[in-house]
């Protein structure tokens, strides 16, 4: 799991790469939770380089979504690969997580 964090105004942008599965999800979840603890209210997850999301990955996204919600913030996902987008659709996650085509669109969603 490759992770890089960038902060633009009060939006924390996490660019992830690799497989968001039972192996990578815990690290991803811990890192993002740490950002929330540091005070980031708005989380933008750029999944452009994520080629696989398993049920463990979905669970992590769910945990983060709940954490953001309880902190009174907002979260959005962007630049999903077609296969990852399919997973979101099949599992119904597209109904509860805001998905955007690219970063600019996602930043608009977070405004």
């Amino acid at each position: 799991m490759e992770l890089s964090v960038e902060k633009r105004n009060d939006v924390a942008i996490v660019a992830a790469g690799g497989r968001l599965d039972a192996g990578g999800a815990p690290e991803f979840e811990t890192r993002c939770k740490a950002l929330l603890q540091e005070g980031a209210k708005r989380l933008l997850l750029d999944l452009a380089k994520v080629d696989y999301v398993s049920s463990a990955g979905l669970r992590s996204l769910l945990v983060l979504a709940k954490a953001v919600k309880s902190a009174g913030g907002a979260m959005a996902l962007c630049s999903l690969a077609p296969a990852v987008r399919d997973v979101m659709t099949i599992s119904g996650f597209d109904n509860i997580l805001p998905l955007a085509a690219d970063r600019a669109a996602a930043l608009d969603l977070l405004k």
Partner: peptide, 9 residues
């Protein structure tokens, strides 16, 4: 039709 997974929310 696809709906949300079960048990999460």
């Amino acid at each position: 039709k696809t709906n949300m997974v079960v048990g999460a929310l």
